[in-house]
C-alpha cells in the first residue's frame, strides 16, 4: 500500500518533470522562429496600421495623428487609380501569359523526347537567377539602338520601339521580362501535374473514341486543375511582389506607366519619406495578398489531406 502510493506520487512527479522537459524543448525549438516573427512580422503589421493614421516624414521627432487623412489622400491622388490599374494589368497579363504558355510548354514537353530533361532545366533556370541581374540584361536587350531586339529587327527593316522610354511600350516590356523569368517554373509544375494524371484515364478515353481535343478537355484539364489553381495563386503573389524588375528597368516610369503598388510603397516610404501614406499602400497590398494566401493555404491543406 505504502509502496504503491509512493510509486504513484513519484510517477506523477516524474510525469510533470517530463512534461516540463517537453515544453522547454518545444520552446527552445520553436521559440526563436516565433519570436522573430513577433518582432519582424506581427508587431510591424500593427505598427504599419498605426503609421497609416499618422503624418510623419521618418526624420522629424513629431508624429501627428491625422485619422483617415492618409487614406483620403491616397485614394483621391490623381495617380492612384493609374497605379492600381497598372498593378491589375501587370498581374493579369503576366499571370495569364505564364499560365497559358506554361501549359503549352508543359503539354509538349511531357512526352518521351530526347533532351527533354535538359530543356526543362534550361527553361527553369531564369527562375533562380537574380531579378536585378535579369532586369539589367533586359535593359541592354531592349535598347532601341544596339540591343538584341534591334539586332533582330534591323535586318528586317523594322524599327525597334523605345521599349523603356515610351509609356505605351514600358508595361509590355516589364511583362515580357516577368514572363521570361517565370515561364519555366510554370512549365515544370505543369509537367509534374501531368505526370500525376493516371495513364489509364487516357487509355480509357481513347478506347471510348475520344479525340485529342476531347481527351484534353475531359481528362487533362480536370486532372490539372489543382496544379493550375496553385500556379494562379503563386503567380499572383509573385507578381504583386515584383519590385526588382520595375525599380531597375523603369523606376515606375515613364510618367507612372509601370508604377505598381509595391513600387509606390517603396517610392512613398523611402524616396518621399511619406511614411503615413506608405502605410496605407502597405495595408492595401496586405489585404490583397492576404486573400490570395488564404486561398493558397486551403489548397495546400487539401492536397495534404486527400493526396
Amino acid at each position: 500500500m505504502q509502496l504503491t502510493k509512493h510509486d504513484f506520487s513519484a510517477s506523477i512527479a516524474g510525469r510533470i518533470r517530463r512534461d516540463w522537459r517537453e515544453w522547454l524543448i518545444f520552446l527552445a525549438f520553436a521559440g526563436p522562429n516565433v519570436a522573430l516573427f513577433a518582432i519582424f512580422t506581427y508587431a510591424p503589421m500593427v505598427n504599419n496600421l498605426i503609421l497609416s493614421f499618422n503624418d510623419w516624414n521618418m526624420i522629424s521627432s513629431d508624429k501627428a495623428w491625422v485619422g483617415l487623412q492618409n487614406y483620403i489622400d491616397v485614394f483621391t491622388d490623381s495617380q492612384f487609380s493609374r497605379i492600381f490599374l497598372n498593378t491589375i494589368v501587370f498581374t493579369a497579363a503576366s499571370v495569364t501569359l505564364v499560365l497559358a504558355l506554361g501549359l503549352g510548354g508543359g503539354l509538349l514537353l511531357n512526352q518521351k523526347l530526347r533532351g527533354r530533361n535538359a530543356a526543362r532545366s534550361i527553361l527553369f533556370s531564369p527562375h533562380i537567377l537574380s531579378g536585378a541581374a535579369i532586369a539589367i540584361v533586359w535593359i541592354y536587350i531592349f535598347d532601341p539602338r544596339f540591343g538584341l531586339i534591334y539586332a533582330v529587327l534591323h535586318p528586317l527593316g523594322i524599327q525597334s520601339p523605345n521599349w523603356l522610354t515610351d509609356p505605351n511600350w514600358s508595361m509590355p516590356a516589364i511583362v515580357i521580362v516577368y514572363v521570361w523569368k517565370y515561364l519555366g517554373y510554370a512549365t515544370v509544375i505543369y509537367i509534374a501535374g501531368l505526370q500525376a494524371i493516371p495513364g489509364d484515364l487516357y487509355e480509357a478515353a481513347r478506347v471510348d473514341g475520344a479525340g485529342a481535343w476531347m481527351r484534353f478537355r475531359h481528362v487533362t484539364l480536370p486532372g490539372l486543375s489543382p496544379v493550375m489553381f496553385f500556379l494562379v495563386l503563386t503567380s499572383i503573389l509573385s507578381s504583386f511582389q515584383s519590385f526588382d524588375i520595375i525599380n531597375i528597368m523603369t523606376k515606375g516610369g515613364p510618367i507612372n506607366s509601370t508604377n505598381t503598388l509595391i513600387y509606390h510603397l517603396y517610392e512613398l516610404g523611402f524616396i518621399n519619406f511619406s511614411i503615413g501614406r506608405a502605410g496605407v499602400i502597405g495595408m492595401i497590398l496586405f489585404v490583397l495578398m492576404f486573400v490570395v494566401t488564404l486561398l493558397q493555404l486551403r489548397y495546400l491543406d487539401r492536397q495534404v489531406n486527400y493526396a
Binding site: N33, V34, F37, I39, F40, T41, Y42, A43, P44, M45, N47, N48, L51, M58, L237, F240, Q241, F243, I262, L265, Y266, G269, F270, I275, A278, G279, G282, L285, F286, M289, F290, T293, L294, L297
Partner: peptide, 21 residues
C-alpha cells in the same frame, strides 16, 4: 496558426516598420 499568420504577411508590406526597428 501563428506561423500561418506570418505566411500571410509578405515582407514587402512591412518594410517601413522593419526599417524603423
Amino acid at each position: 496558426v501563428l506561423l500561418l499568420l506570418a505566411l500571410m504577411v509578405p515582407e514587402e508590406v512591412v518594410i517601413v516598420p522593419n526599417y524603423l526597428t
